[in-house]
């Protein structure tokens, strides 16, 4: 058992998968340059020394090409892990992901598959609105893509390894404030959780959520950073005798909806916390599922704690108004009791 940050756990997952399977390679911007920083958040640091620069491919600043090359290589039998420097850049490659990777298998009647992994950092930091978005919902909307969002080192390693072995395109969303990147690449205000990661081989199956804290009074669903905010909220609520159950879906597609429904059945109340903007967000989909399939168990309306419908602001003075935090979650829970 080793203590690892999420960045270290992801690196270890890539290392093990590259050692296991010659077809696995990394592709992206600034990921293997000697003397460079191993990707924007150090996840691939040192891997080009270990595996050679032919398997840790540094590209031009060409997001369409990164995605297209990964897709083409995957269809042709390889197992690419594409590094998207900032999740926001996924929009630059949207045709390749939405029209090509996601639909190729279906349109071909099952002739081809696209076993590709695309890792993308999300979340508000001090970079302004174009390096801040939480984009998961865009991709959960597109049939043919799997979407995972690990929030612990254990899950990051296990889910990334599962993603590499999956026969389909898998988007792995990682949160900038959770990586635990060190040195000059460390993030101000980061949570950087360190977690225990077993020495022996393991996988975390895609499609299974987990209960992070048990409770009987209210269900709080949170992913990535908001999962931690939900846990903090649960601590505050516990002091007042309110027992919150915190669910981390870990995978967004396919969603472990039974886990959420079972929890709501027990608690009768649901708050969904996410960092994305409110309208059309992932939280809205969870609310819709529970309204549709779990309405009879609800004792109160479903509440969403999301970012408001504005671009991410820069000034620290606006953070509290923008970010879904533990206090907003506590307030949402109390409004249901």
């Amino acid at each position: 058992m080793a203590e690892m940050s999420i960045a270290e756990a992801l690196r270890q997952a890539i290392r093990e998968e590259m050692a296991r399977d010659d077809r696995v390679f990394c592709i992206g911007e600034d990921i293997g340059i000697p003397g460079g920083f191993g990707g924007a958040f150090t996840v691939t640091l040192g891997l080009s020394d270990e595996f050679g620069r032919d398997r840790v491919l540094d590209t031009p600043i060409s997001e369409i090409a990164i995605a297209g090359v990964a897709i083409g290589a995957a269809i042709a039998g390889m197992r690419p892990i594409a590094d998207v420097q900032y999740g926001d850049f996924l929009f630059c490659m949207m045709d390749q992901i939405a029209n090509q990777a996601a639909k190729m298998r279906y349109m071909s009647g099952g002739q081809v598959s696209v076993p590709m992994v695309m890792r993308a950092p999300v979340g508000q930091t001090r970079r302004g609105a174009q390096h801040a978005q939480s984009l998961e919902a865009f991709f959960t909307h597109i049939p043919g893509l799997k979407v995972v969002a690990p929030s612990t080192a254990y899950d990051a390693k296990g889910l990334l390894k599962s993603a590499v072995r999956d026969e389909n395109p898998v988007l792995v969303f990682e949160h900038k404030l959770l990586y635990g990147s060190k040195g000059p690449r460390s993030e101000r205000g980061a949570l950087s959780p360190v977690g225990e990661v077993p020495d022996e081989e393991y996988l975390v199956p895609i499609g299974e959520g987990v209960i992070r804290r048990e409770g009987k009074d209210v269900t709080i669903v949170g992913k990535l950073l908001t999962m931690y905010r939900a846990l903090q909220a649960a601590e505050i609520l516990a002091e007042e005798g309110i027992e919150a159950e915190v669910i981390d879906p870990r995978t967004l597609v396919p969603l472990d909806k039974e886990l959420i429904l079972a929890s709501v059945r027990k608690t009768g109340r649901l708050v969904i916390a996410e960092e994305d903007n409110l309208t059309g967000g992932w939280a809205a989909e969870i609310a819709a599922i529970v309204a549709d399939e779990g309405f009879v168990w609800l004792d109160a309306p479903i509440k969403r704690v999301s970012a408001p419908d504005v671009p991410a602001p820069f000034s620290p003075a606006l953070d509290d108004a923008y970010m879904p935090n533990e206090h907003k979650i506590v307030a949402a829970v109390k409004s249901l009791l």
Binding site: I64, A67, G68, V69, I71, G72, I75, A76, M78, Q96
Partner: peptide, 8 residues
């Protein structure tokens, strides 16, 4: 770009 990937 997909052709480039297959070529890779």
């Amino acid at each position: 770009p997909i052709a480039a990937g297959a070529g890779l």
